[in-house]
């Protein structure tokens, strides 16, 4: 299934397209992370969703790859001012992963292998807005860009798209993640230029 998100411009993006305020175009894919790249072995990789009830939903790499996947073409916006147009990904929609999760909590803390965290409202992960991506530009996701699998939430600044995703933990309150505790915005909408708290 193909998915087109806001700003889709095909394989040859229009350089005159409107960008979020304060952003400039890049053709590269700069690497940003808060620590060294963790060595995540797919044989031991697990993705977990923890509901506030204590219920845990868990997928091995094989189980995860057996889920229905989508091709996604989208622009991505980094808080450090670069925007990359028309990037292509393949991943599993969060709608699929949350299909059997019963929760009344409104917020999620994403946890990565290596210890990184970032907070998001649950409503920003559902309704075709977010994926757990495992391919970039037709290739398995490189570890420096978050492989084997990363969160992809392209309508928010890219620090919200946690690399090396390991788990999603439901939380009643919007507790801040790593960068959010250290001066960055709790939500991070690039169109509203929500860079800092």
């Amino acid at each position: 299934m193909g998915v087109v998100t806001r700003g889709f411009g095909g394989r040859r993006p229009d350089p005159d397209r409107e960008l979020p305020p304060g952003q400039f175009l890049t053709q590269d894919f700069p690497v940003l992370s808060a620590g060294p790249t963790p060595n995540v072995d797919e044989a031991h990789w697990q993705l977990e969703i923890h509901a506030e009830t204590g219920e845990v939903h868990r997928w091995s790499w094989e189980q995860f790859l057996a889920l229905p996947a989508q091709d996604v073409t989208t622009d991505i916006h980094c808080v450090t001012h670069w925007t990359k147009l028309g990037t292509t990904w393949r991943g599993v929609s969060l709608d699929t992963l949350f299909e059997d999760v019963e929760t009344s909590a409104d917020f999620v803390m994403a946890h990565s292998y290596g210890g990184y965290t970032t907070n998001l409202p649950l409503q920003d992960l559902l309704d075709g807005q977010a994926w757990v991506a495992f391919e970039f530009e037709g290739e398995p996701l490189d570890p420096v860009h978050g492989g084997p699998a990363r969160l992809l939430v392209p309508h928010l600044y890219f620090w919200k798209s946690a690399k090396w995703l390991h788990g999603l933990v439901m939380q009643d309150d919007d507790e801040p993640g790593f960068w959010e505790r250290n001066g960055y915005h709790l939500y991070g909408d690039p169109w509203l230029e929500q860079r800092y708290s």
């Binding site: 700069p30 992370s33 808060a34 620590g35 060294p36 450090t80 210890g115 960068w179 960055y184």
Partner: peptide, 22 residues
């Protein structure tokens, strides 16, 4: 660990985050 978002200072013994500079 320097990145354009900030500097993350980690313990040389256990790699825990000591200080963050933004």
């Amino acid at each position: 660990h320097l990145s354009p978002m900030g500097a993350v200072v980690r313990c040389a013994a256990c790699d825990a985050v000591l200080v963050v500079v933004v």
